[in-house]
Structures are given as structure tokens and as C-alpha cells.
């Protein structure tokens, strides 16, 4: 099941690439880099989340910083 999810994620990422890549002309070099980086990051994160669903994320960091204030306001 997990590998199926990875396969699904890969397919989605491939579809995005197939949709976008031909639209980018040669002089859009920076865009291509941005696209590749973001897409790869997305793929990597998605796969990571498949295997480690409880991976601590930015929400936890924000929780740590702002929760005390939030609690303070609501007490």
C-alpha cells in the first residue's frame, strides 16, 4: 500500500512535469530550476510523509513558539 502511494505520488509529479515542461521555453532557465527544485522537494516530502506520517513539521515549530501566547490569551 505504501509503495502504491509512492507510485501515485510519482505519477502525479510526472503529470505535472509533463504538463508544465513543454510550456517552458528555452530562455526560462531560472524558472526551470525553480520548477525542478520545488517539484523534487514536493515529491521528497510526500514520500517522507507516506513513510513517516507523524514527521514533525513547521506546524510543530510554530506550535512551540506561539502556543504559550495563545494559551495566555485564552485563559
Amino acid at each position: 500500500m505504501k509503495w502504491a502511494s509512492v507510485l501515485g505520488i510519482t505519477v502525479v509529479v510526472m503529470l505535472i512535469t509533463l504538463y508544465e515542461w513543454p510550456k517552458m521555453t528555452k530562455n526560462l532557465k531560472k524558472e526551470k530550476w525553480a520548477f525542478v527544485t520545488l517539484t523534487m522537494a514536493g515529491w521528497l516530502l510526500a514520500v517522507l510523509l507516506v513513510f513517516l506520517p507523524s514527521l514533525p513539521g513547521p506546524n510543530d515549530l510554530i506550535d512551540m513558539i506561539f502556543k504559550p501566547f495563545g494559551k495566555l490569551l485564552q485563559e
Binding site: 509529479v13 505535472i16 508544465e20 510550456k23 524558472e31 520545488l38 517539484t39
Partner: peptide, 13 residues
């Protein structure tokens, strides 16, 4: 110079 290519990757994120 063009924002369209990053729409889908950002959506995915």
C-alpha cells in the same frame, strides 16, 4: 520572470 511554471509544484506543496 514568469510565475506560471511554479503554480502546480506549489499547489502540490
Amino acid at each position: 520572470s514568469n510565475y506560471r511554471p511554479i503554480v502546480f509544484p506549489l499547489g502540490f506543496l
